[in-house]
Amino acid sequence: MGNTTSNIKITSHDKAILQLKLQRDKLNKSKLKIQSVIDREIIIAKQCIAENKLDKAKLTLRKKKRQESLLNNLERQSDTLEELIDTIEFKLIEKDIIFGLEQGNKVLKEINNELNIERVEKIMDDSIEAINYQNELSDKLGNLLTNGEELEVDDELRKLEIEMGVINDNKETDIKDTNIDKNKLNKLNNLPNVPKIIKQDSIEEGEDEIVENNNDYSKVPQLA
């Protein structure tokens, strides 16, 4: 169950290879047989020599020689067969590799089709449009807030800053503010939304304060 090799199919290729291998096995068996014959002839020849039957010994050795050349032939044939089997098996591997390459190429093409330039450009255009739309929307929403609401927002920010301890010395900043305000007021006397500017300046001051105070905080533990 769930085994990748669960359904092994035997193809005509497999059968052909099997036939070759069976043929090779047969040759190997014949080689063994002839080898045993040769071994026997040697024993017989030795016997004949011992019994001084030189003619018979010579005959046996001739037989042996013939068997040996047969064996040689067999060995060459089995070698050829072996080579053929190796080639076929290797070709099958190559076939698999080509198939794999083909598949890979196909997938690559498909992915490239999905990534074509026009589409990318369209997406980029869409993105720019979306960004513009977003900016427009923010602008509009920003304008929707009345001046009074802006003030409330500023107040809330200030409150939170005090609450979180980023602004310590309220009076000092206030004094600074008024100093700057006087200069600015001289220049921008006639503008209707003066308080807003004052407040915005004070925020900027507050931000400066944040940096300073942060430095202070980082110094405190070192001193202690």
Binding site: D14, I17, K21, L22, D25, N28, E89
Partner: peptide, 10 residues
């Protein structure tokens, strides 16, 4: 791969 029985044995 394809194996013959003789091959496995010998």
């Amino acid at each position: 791969s394809i194996l013959t029985v003789y091959e496995i044995q010998n």
